Simulated assay, not measured.
Amino acid sequence: MAVFVQTEDFDVSTELAKMRAGKPAIGAVVSFVGLVRDLNDGLDVQAMELEHYPGMTEKSLDDIVQQAGQRWQLLDTLVIHRVGVLQPLDQIVLVAVASAHRGQAFAACEFIMDYLKTQAPFWKKEQTSQGARWVDAREADDHALNKWQLAGTISTNSGKEPV
């Protein structure tokens, strides 16, 4: 189980190969890669800047990975989230989950991503043709998180405020 917050790009194939290496019990790997779009809410996006609280962010991501591990029988989990200034088409995030069976890997990957989108302490600022603007979580992201809260208890402390 690994969590990284970094400015550097990542190679998905390399990361998935490292995850699988020497682990013959793995029967499924599910991954999600989030990218910077060039259009958001009708405005051209020229760049996106992601900010975070070092230490707090990694702890928050570790917590959700641990919660996923308590819900499903996982063999490995990887979260890489980039920060800094990114351009359209740049990779932002990689969530990869390995398990013996695909159902658990799919569910855990979706769970981690839904939490990350709404609760992890990252702040996004887009540079658009109309100027800079902060990006809030979408209502659809909150609804996605709610299904996990109804299915079981997860931490609702967003990590965005000191505890």
Rank of each mutant, 00 (worst) to 15 (best):
M1K: 04
A2L: 14
V3D: 06
F4E: 02
T7K: 15
E8H: 09
F10P: 12
D11P: 12
V12S: 11
S13A: 12
T14N: 07
L16M: 13
A17H: 07
K18A: 10
M19F: 13
M19V: 15
K23F: 04
K23L: 12
P24I: 14
G27C: 15
V29E: 15
V30Y: 05
V30L: 01
V33Y: 08
L35I: 00
D41C: 04
D41E: 11
V45R: 05
A47T: 12
A47D: 09
H52Q: 02
P54M: 14
P54V: 10
G55R: 08
T57P: 02
T57H: 07
E58W: 11
E58V: 10
S60Y: 05
L61I: 03
D63E: 15
I64P: 11
Q67P: 13
Q70P: 09
L75I: 07
D76Q: 12
T77N: 05
L78Q: 08
L78K: 15
I80P: 10
Q87N: 06
P88A: 08
L89K: 07
L89G: 01
V95L: 02
V97L: 02
R102S: 14
R102P: 11
A105F: 09
F106R: 06
A107G: 09
E110H: 11
Y115I: 03
L116V: 11
T118M: 14
Q119M: 10
Q119F: 05
P121V: 12
F122H: 02
K125R: 10
E126Y: 02
Q127I: 13
T128I: 12
Q130A: 13
A132S: 10
E139V: 00
E139D: 13
A140H: 07
D142N: 02
H143V: 07
A144T: 00
L145T: 02
N146F: 08
K147I: 12
W148D: 14
L150H: 11
I154P: 13
S158G: 06
V163Q: 08
V163F: 04
